[in-house]
Design a binder for these strands. Structure first.
Lengths: 370, 370
DNA sequence: CTGAAAGCGCTTACAG
DNA sequence: CTGAAAGCGCTTACAG
């Protein structure tokens, strides 16, 4: 019991240790172990001795020391807002792409979760203290304040940003086109009254989607109808709230024939409410999501959706960021990078069972019991 | 165009800069800005000058330098294996808990994705080079090799590990009890033939779940039946494969009355196959998952499941790891921490619409057309 | 109350 | 081909 206890050797071996062991300087060890260009400068025999010593001591370069010297952490920040305290499937998909690309370039990724883009702005800026070489913002809500605070020494790239900021490259998709085509497709099937349950207006992406939707209606000469576009949070509870609210407001009226949603989570929330109300999908009403995230494939019926290549987009965000990091000194690198890379991705309609031809009989919205 | 171009000021302000600006030493700036205990040693007036200078220069401590000095990165590694190149909902849930707890302690988290626990063992060990202060392994498959390679200077904690390793604290749940209770519940409803589609045998957790399941059958004196426990990957495709394979092998026989699955993803995969085969849930067959991850709530019908408090478990993994990091020097800290903390969590049955009483009529397994 | 010095572990010129 | 020196930005004793 209370005897002498061996202290765990908690100190990792350093270059100096390796050098001592091999009978050379730390510097020599450095040039052998950390494969600088001048690797031929050390004689074969010394080289072997050093490698052997490193193996024996289980040497690993200390990244903090290296980072201090190189001004490079090989670590990329990923900032995301958490709704309802949960990272969502949209983020998971994007993050998959980021991580995959980061691995390829031997970069680490550190996730920073924010409660709120505006209030946590200072926190976000605070992360630019050398721990990361660059930051990817996923779905940020950028305020004018941001532009003044963003530090020059850490490049930022965003995904689905709400607004264009000079010096921040944004990756996005042709959301408007996607929305247009989905609504167009529904109209072609014979649908006439289409409800749009979407995200909050501040997001440029949402504005584009609504725009695309309305344009399709206009082109088909469908008159605009009051309260047929509803704004809510891009989440299951958001869809839930919006759908039940809408049904209550329009009780006793004719049910629309189709619903297009701002994302899959909203669609799932709507589906839950419809199921409870005894309204069948797609027999009574068609519904489609946006993103084609994992959730779209696990609903029954499976959800038609508008696919953004989120994974590729995440990967591209990382690639572009890395280019910026590597060319930090060049003042016009932003424009060059913008020109040389794909920054806006094509979307694609994904057809599943939640959409069919419109019902042929009238259906009056029943009272909800919750 | 080709004129002189201003170089972006890419160097962040240092303590020396702040000191110079305020007319004091870097050291004085350090003690004011980085609130060491001896903060009262600086006069109020100097203090203000320093703070003002720091604000002006937008000073932020450089974490690399600090880490080098403190031997502390304030960064926690999270290692996870990616199946099918995708992070899964189980991980997302655990990660939510880890991130939340990490935020509370001002720690960052860096995700390391592995293709394979065995082959990537060296990579995993390689991450212990000072960039993280400790590592959480999520669902690792630990080989004997691991014990020899794991570095002493970086503490490890695991979640749902396959085997106990001295020096690695493992967080787990009473999975066996959970399985026992779910099967028991099905038996009480009147089910007799229950198919078990679960994960691979190497995982201790899977062994426990199967054990619990079989024990419940034995206690109810249900005779063991051949091929009623099937092992597959813990993923949607895994469930897909296992279910369609099983139905083909047993075509023309009586369909079991219920299915218990190794996790929710497997259950979702099974549901897809059953839906295609025209077998209704829960009228024709009941099914339940394990984990109660997000996926369980987005299926229709919603999936009954066995809830492990994944988020809490993730948070606890971080807390325990942090304790270990903070008490690295004490040789018996592992035992102390193990005693002082909750390491095995209770589970809870979650009842949803995918389970009901067994069907009263015979149902012969049809041919599948895929 | 304040500062000069040394050192964390690495790399990058500069000498030999 | 190899090494001594300086420095990355911070902190921690140690002097005054």
């Amino acid at each position: 019991m209370g005897n002498t206890k061996k202290k765990r050797t908690s100190r990792a071996a350093t270059l100096a240790d390796v050098g001592r062991e091999a009978g050379v300087s730390a510097m020599a060890a450095s040039s052998v172990l950390n494969r600088t260009k001048s690797s031929s400068r050390i004689s074969q025999e010394t080289r072997e001795r050093i490698l052997e010593a490193a193996r024996m001591l289980n040497y690993r370069p200390n990244v903090a020391a290296r980072a201090l010297q190189n001004r490079r952490m090989n670590n990329i920040g990923v900032a995301v807002m958490v709704d309802y305290n949960e990272l969502n499937p949209y983020f998971l998909e994007v993050f998959n792409g980021i991580v995959e690309a980061a691995d390829k370039h031997d970069q680490n990724t550190t996730v920073f979760t924010l409660k709120d883009w505006t209030n946590d702005l200072n926190r976000l800026i605070g992360f630019c203290d050398g721990r990361i070489d660059g930051m990817i913002m996923v779905g940020p809500l950028i305020t004018p304040e941001f532009e003044q605070l963003v530090p020059l020494h850490t490049p930022f790239v965003s995904l689905h940003s709400n607004s264009a900021v000079s010096n921040v490259i944004n990756i996005e998709s042709f959301e408007g086109t996607g929305s247009y085509e989905m609504t167009r497709y529904l109209l072609d099937l014979g649908h006439k009254r289409i409800l749009n349950v979407t995200g909050h207006k501040e997001f440029v992406g949402i504005q584009r989607r609504v725009q695309g939707h309305l344009q399709a209606l206009e082109d088909a000469q469908i008159p605009h109808e009051e309260d047929l576009v509803v704004y809510t949070e891009l989440s299951i509870p958001g869809g839930h709230k919006a759908m039940s609210g809408w049904l209550k407001r329009h009780r006793g009226e004719e049910l629309p024939e189709a619903i297009v949603c701002g994302n899959d989570s909203i669609a799932i929330g709507c589906m839950e409410v419809l199921a409870k109300a005894g309204i069948r999908i797609p027999q009574d009403i068609s519904i489609c999501g946006f993103d084609d995230s994992i959730g779209a494939r696990t609903t029954v019926p499976q959800l038609s959706s508008i696919r953004q290549p989120l994974r590729q987009m995440g990967a591209q965000a990382l690639e572009v960021l890395l280019q910026r990091i590597n060319t930090m000194e060049a003042p016009d690198s932003v424009e060059q990078i913008s020109k040389a890379n794909k920054l806006c991705f094509d979307i694609e309609l994904v057809h599943r069972a939640s959409v069919s031809k419109p019902r042929t009989t009238s259906l009056i919205i029943p009272a909800l019991n919750d």
